[in-house]
């Protein structure tokens, strides 16, 4: 297969940064790496928070909206996650994760917490109509490119593995909820989730999207 060499998120960040500079958003910090921004953030530099939001806020909001299917809740999830970044940047360990992964993990966890809480409260799943109507807008070219590669990798997964990953990651469902919804044994869903994520990792590496974690 043709290997598309896409720099990982750090590389995407580089492109984003130059876009940001062209737009004159946060000129002074555009040259810094994500890690350097977190260092500044740990010293309460608001500009660093603004710059990180400019880099990852769009993806973060898209993810939160996909999970929560409610614009207000999605905004809350993104805000909570960025405030968590603001408060705990000093505890970030660069050898454990990329900043982008850390931020998106916080966004995901917060969104999943909110969707589970909200569904418990309402006693029913959140309305799914927004998801169908959603359309990508206004993203940086590099983000669109990255999106295309990940979507392509997802398409190449066996459909049952893809379904298990999507219900878990985007649906906010636990393994037993997925098993119940699909009428499959719990053990099958766990195996499928593991096989699917491992296969996706491979496909992304082949596409040059993902490199092993540094350190």
């Amino acid at each position: 297969m043709t290997t598309l060499r896409l720099p990982h998120l750090a590389g995407v960040g580089t492109v984003l940064r130059s876009d940001a500079v062209r737009r004159g958003r946060t000129k002074s910090l555009g040259h810094l790496t994500d890690e350097e921004l977190l260092d500044l953030l740990a010293r309460s530099d608001e500009r660093a928070l603004a710059e990180l939001y400019d880099r990852f806020g769009g993806v973060a909001y898209g993810l939160a909206l996909r999970i929560l299917r409610d614009e207000t809740l999605a905004q809350d999830a993104v805000q909570d996650a960025f405030l968590a970044v603001w408060r705990s940047a000093a505890t970030f360990l660069p050898e454990r994760a990329r900043p982008s992964t850390w931020i998106l993990t916080l966004v995901h966890r917060r969104a999943v917490d909110l969707v589970r809480r909200e569904e418990r409260r309402r006693g029913e799943p959140l309305d799914d109509s927004l998801h169908a109507a959603a359309a990508a807008t206004d993203d940086e070219a590099s983000v669109r490119f990255h999106r295309r590669l990940v979507q392509e990798a997802l398409r190449r997964l066996p459909p049952d593995q893809r379904e298990a990953l999507e219900l878990g990651y985007y649906g906010g469902l636990t393994q037993s909820q997925i098993a119940e919804r699909l009428g499959e044994p719990l053990g099958t869903i766990k195996s499928r989730t593991f096989a699917g994520l491992a296969r996706l990792r491979e496909l992304l590496r082949e596409a040059g999207v993902e490199e092993p974690v540094a350190g």
Partner: peptide, 14 residues
């Protein structure tokens, strides 16, 4: 890292 990549696959409004 792989899971975070999934965040990029979402088509969503800004």
């Amino acid at each position: 890292e792989t899971a975070a990549s999934l965040a990029y696959a979402v088509d969503a409004p800004a």
